Simulated scan of single mutants.
Amino acid sequence: MPDEQDDATALTFTSVQAEEGLADWRMMFQTLETRYATGSFATGLELTSRIGAVADELDHHPELDLRFATLHVRLISRDVFGVTGRDLALARRISAVAADLGVGADPGAVEIVELALDTPDRAAIKPFWRAVLGYDDHPLHDGEVRDLQGIGPALWFQQTDPHDEPRQRFHLDVRVPPEVAGPRIEAALAAGGTLVSDERAPMFVVLADAQGNKVCVTTGLGRD
Rank of each mutant, 00 (worst) to 15 (best):
residue 208 A to F: 04
residue 17 Q to G: 13
residue 83 V to A: 13
residue 18 A to V: 03
residue 87 D to F: 11
residue 173 D to A: 06
residue 92 R to Q: 11
residue 170 F to A: 11
residue 121 D to I: 06
residue 60 H to D: 10
residue 85 G to W: 04
residue 168 Q to M: 10
residue 221 L to N: 01
residue 172 L to V: 13
residue 12 T to K: 09
residue 70 T to L: 02
residue 146 R to G: 01
residue 5 Q to T: 15
residue 122 R to F: 05
residue 215 V to D: 06
residue 140 L to M: 12
residue 214 K to H: 06
residue 40 S to G: 05
residue 105 A to E: 08
residue 214 K to W: 02
residue 91 A to N: 11
residue 80 V to I: 13
residue 214 K to Y: 01
residue 52 G to P: 01
residue 21 G to H: 00
residue 205 V to M: 06
residue 168 Q to D: 05
residue 155 L to H: 02
residue 119 T to P: 02
residue 192 G to M: 07
residue 36 Y to T: 13
residue 58 L to V: 09
residue 46 E to R: 14
residue 147 D to I: 06
residue 28 M to W: 05
residue 16 V to P: 03
residue 82 G to Y: 11
residue 63 E to Q: 15
residue 133 L to A: 02
residue 4 E to L: 14
residue 111 E to P: 03
residue 131 A to D: 04
residue 41 F to Q: 06
residue 87 D to E: 15
residue 149 Q to Y: 12
residue 58 L to F: 15
residue 57 E to V: 11
residue 5 Q to A: 14
residue 112 I to K: 10
residue 16 V to Q: 07
residue 125 I to C: 00
residue 75 L to H: 12
residue 150 G to I: 04
residue 206 V to W: 09
residue 95 S to M: 07
residue 198 D to Y: 03
residue 205 V to I: 11
residue 178 P to I: 09
residue 122 R to N: 03
residue 1 M to R: 13
residue 168 Q to T: 06
residue 100 D to P: 09
residue 194 T to A: 13
residue 211 Q to G: 02
residue 60 H to C: 10
residue 38 T to Y: 11
residue 88 L to P: 01
residue 12 T to M: 00
residue 75 L to Y: 13
residue 95 S to I: 07
residue 131 A to K: 05
residue 203 M to Q: 13
residue 63 E to H: 15
residue 110 V to P: 11
residue 84 T to F: 01
residue 114 E to I: 04
residue 185 I to M: 10
residue 85 G to Y: 03
residue 122 R to Y: 02
residue 10 A to Y: 02
residue 43 T to C: 08
residue 210 A to K: 04
